[in-house]
Simulated scan of single mutants.
Amino acid sequence: MVSTSNHSPALESWQQNLAPYNLGYRIKLVSQLLSRKFTDKLEPFGLTPFHWLVLCCLWQEDGLPTSSIGDKLKQVGGTLTGVLDRMEERGLVRRERDTHDRRIWRIWLTDAGKELETILPPIAAAVRDEAMDGISFADRELFSQILNRAIANLS
């Protein structure tokens, strides 16, 4: 870190806002490192972290409208449509029109998509546990609450 011994307290306070010491940079770095590690683990399955997120939504509630998945993941339609196209090509999901409103497409897991529910969560947990090694359960919970609050503050 840059020495601030010859600077005023105001400047010392300001230094913590500079990369690579600021909070935003460090959160981005953690995100990139987690994503890289998880991407490596998902690669043998031909999946990406975004596929994982969509699968998680559908494991919790199968048959969601595309818009609901986008809302949950805070994604725009075009991005999600491409991901769903690739997941459908791989035989993980199928699309069906809503029986009550033909404008709505519902996304359903196939048997292959359902099978991944027993395979992928332990892999994700192992990556999480590696990242959280040496951090107590209480601190993990506090960290999660702080992140949730920051997300809410900025949303």
Rank of each mutant, 00 (worst) to 15 (best):
F38I: 08
F38M: 14
F38R: 12
F38N: 08
T39L: 04
K41C: 14
E43T: 03
P44M: 04
P44C: 03
F45I: 14
F45S: 07
F45W: 07
F45P: 00
G46S: 01
L47D: 05
L47G: 02
L47H: 01
P49I: 01
F50A: 06
W52K: 05
W52C: 07
L53P: 06
V54I: 15
L55E: 09
C57T: 05
L58F: 04
L58C: 00
W59Q: 02
W59R: 00
Q60T: 06
Q60M: 09
Q60Y: 10
E61T: 13
E61Q: 12
E61M: 13
D62V: 01
L64V: 03
L64R: 14
L64E: 03
L64I: 04
P65N: 05
T66F: 04
S67E: 11
S68R: 00
I69K: 11
I69Y: 09
G70I: 08
G70E: 11
D71S: 14
D71I: 14
K72D: 01
L73D: 04
K74G: 10
K74E: 15
Q75T: 11
V76Y: 10
V76N: 03
V76K: 02
G77M: 06
G78P: 10
G78N: 15
G78L: 11
G78M: 12
G78D: 09
L80M: 07
T81A: 09
T81I: 02
G82V: 06
V83G: 06
L84I: 13
D85I: 02
M87I: 01
E88T: 12
G91R: 05
G91W: 05
L92N: 05
R94K: 11
R94Y: 13
R95Q: 14
E96L: 14
E96D: 12
E96H: 04
R97F: 00
T99H: 12
H100G: 08
